[in-house]
Design a protein around this nucleic acid. Structure first.
Lengths: 228, 228
DNA sequence: CCTACCGATCGGTAGG
DNA sequence: CCTACCGATCGGTAGG
């Protein structure tokens, strides 16, 4: 019986894992070079195939970007959950703080992925449902905390999505400002400092989210000042 | 007498205003097409000169981008001040709200400029001091409000920059989420809805920023060092 | 400030 | 999944 000669490495993806390999290659290009390094051709080369091969698995470049963004969303969700796992069962505000830290640290650790996931690189109206689903799941890591706080009466009454959007906006803005170097020079390289700042900022919003105690009079938007 | 033939439009910039024209062209390209439409060549064409002409005024593409971003920062500052002017003398929280609305509306009205100003398109370590200065001025529209509130004892005691960073993060995150279509489909086209959402979100953080009344016991976070 | 030119990169397709 | 090719665009430079 003749020994079967193994296929060349180039053929290793004929069984369907080239798609996965291209996504991983894309993430690696983002991690090592940034958004400018991510092209169909570069991903193909990194995966060890010709630059025409990706078209067997993706309709066009946008489809590949969407798949990479989807994986990025999943990694973001996982990073948030990882941080929350370290304080499971703790007070709601402590867990909200952990979720915030996880969100910002993911951005710091994967700035290019973070930008791809949210940035306008993808042709809108061409986002597949699975990408929207991955984004919704990441959003719900924050929203679930808010809903829990509302159910328990810990939080100021209000539309869950308005409260969630506030928390999301806060961490999303902080994450962007940090990775764009707008806060402090070199901050992105100092994880402990990022944790400290994120905690402080998250707790400030937390104070605004908490339900007021009885007899507490705070700012009322529709009341002239000095008439409380 | 022969009538003097006017110079061709191409020569209109020989007296030094090509620099300005190129910046305006860049802003126009961003406004009409997005970041992908902004190239040295496109800006030159829109300004009516050859694609080699810009090098008389800008060392390279990055220098042009920096100049455009600088103008974008100034427009952002102006937009915030415009919104605040409509409620000059009003309560601090009302003015903070107006500043937030101005910030988010600028992003909605100029998404590509907004992304250029903050995004990583510019080679860092090559940002001219004037760009940093323009950014600092925009930041101070928010920070000045915080400092005023601290001086008046209206706000929770704390580091002015931590409080300011919270407010900045909130509006920056909301602005990004809106222009990236992550909040509601079509939201960016509905100015009144953007105003309403921004107001609601801003007021929530405002509650957290306000100084607690006496006898008020709220969640006490044991803050990590360095964030006072 | 212009014309002409350079090398490089890109997304995509033909045809096998 | 490959090779070969396409048109297009880009930043930048030479030389005037």
């Amino acid at each position: 019986m003749p020994i079967r000669v193994p296929r060349k490495p180039r053929d290793a993806y004929q069984h369907g894992d080239l798609r996965h390999a291209l996504i991983q290659a894309g993430l690696k290009l983002l991690a090592e070079g940034g958004a400018g390094e991510l092209s169909l051709r570069a991903a193909a080369e990194l995966a060890g195939v010709s630059h025409a091969a990706p078209y067997r698995h993706f309709k066009d470049k946008n489809a590949l970007l969407a798949a990479i963004a989807e994986e990025g969303f999943r990694q973001l969700t996982a990073r948030i959950r990882q941080e929350m796992a370290s304080c499971a069962g703790a007070d709601l505000m402590v867990r909200l703080r952990a979720a915030s830290v996880g969100y910002v640290l993911f951005a710091v650790e994967n700035p290019a992925s973070f930008r791809l996931v949210f940035g306008g690189s993808l042709e809108k109206a061409e986002v597949p449902p699975s990408l929207n689903q991955a984004g919704t799941e990441a959003y719900h890591t924050l929203r679930d905390l808010i809903v829990e706080g509302l159910s328990a009466g810990r939080l100021r009454a209000g539309d869950p999505d308005t409260l969630s959007l506030s928390a999301w906006s806060l961490v999303h803005g902080l994450a962007n400002l940090v990775i764009d170097g707008m806060v402090e020079p070199g901050l992105a390289a100092d994880e402990e400092r990022v944790r400290a700042i994120t905690t402080a900022v998250s707790d400030l919003l937390g104070q605004g989210l908490l339900a007021p105690k009885k007899n507490e009079h705070r700012f009322d938007a529709n009341r002239p000042p000095g008439t409380s």
